[in-house]
Amino acid sequence: MLEIRNLHANVEGAEILHGIDLTVRAGEVHAIMGPNGSGKSTLAQIIAGRDCYEVTEGTILFDGKNLLELEPEERACEGIFLAFQYPVEIPGVSNTYFLKAALNAVRKYRGEDELDAVEFLSLVREKMKLLGMSEDLMNRSVNEGFSGGEKKRNEIFQMAVLSPRLAVLDETDSGLDIDALKIVANGVNALRSPDRAILVVTHYQRLLDYIVPDYVHVLANGRIVKSGGKDLALELEEKGYSWIDEPASV
C-alpha cells in the first residue's frame, strides 16, 4: 500500500531524512519509534504533504501512485489521514461545518454522493459515541478551547468519520491520560481491517500496549536503524534509545 524508497528530505537547506525505506501492506500496523529530533514527525508530515519540507531524493508510492506529485488534499482524498501531534485551533469554523466539508470533499473525489444532513448526523453520532465525545463539541469551533486530550480525541474522531485507508498517527498519545488513551486506542482499533493500514509514530511504548503493532521500526538521525516485531518496542522501553544511537551516527 505504502512504499517509501530512499527518502531524503531537507528543511531550510538542512537534510533531516537521510534515506528512509519502508513498506506498509494493507492490514498491517507499523510503529515508528525514536528519540526526539530523529525525524519521526517530519516523515509523518511529508507523507501528508507538508510543503515546508523539500524531498531531494527518493519516492513515496501509495497504491502505486506517486504521492509526491499530489497536493495534501488529493492525498487525503486518496485515503491518507494524518492525526496531528499539535492539532490547530480554528476559531469561527464549527466542527460540524468543517467535518461535513471534509467528508463531502473526500466523497466527491471518490465519485460518491454527498451525504445529506440526516445521513451525516447519524454517522457523526455513531462515531462520537465510539470516542466518548459529547455532542456540544460539534457546535464549537474546531479545537477551540479544547483540552490537549480533547484535541487528540477529536483527531481520531475525524479519522473515524473520514475512514481513511492509511492512518498516520503522530504522537497521538502525548497529552492523554490513561482513560483517554484507551478510548483513543479503541477508536483506532475499530478502524483496523484487512484493507487498511496504520502507521503509529510515537516516542513511548505505552500507546503500543493498546494499539498492538505488527512491525516496529526505530528511527534515529533520519534513518531507520532497526526493524522488528512488537517486542522491539518493549526492548526500547526497557533500554531507552541510547543503545541504538551509535550505529546511526557512524
Binding site: 504533504g49 495534501p72 488534499e73 494524518l82 496531528f84 469561527g92 466539508a101 470533499a105
Partner: peptide
C-alpha cells in the same frame, strides 16, 4: 495545511478561513 489534510482544497481552505 490542516484543512487540506482533511480533503479540503487549498483555495477552499483559504476561503473558509477568511470566512471564519
Amino acid at each position: 495545511f490542516y484543512l487540506q489534510t482533511r480533503g479540503i482544497p487549498k483555495d477552499e481552505a483559504k476561503s473558509l478561513l477568511t470566512y471564519a
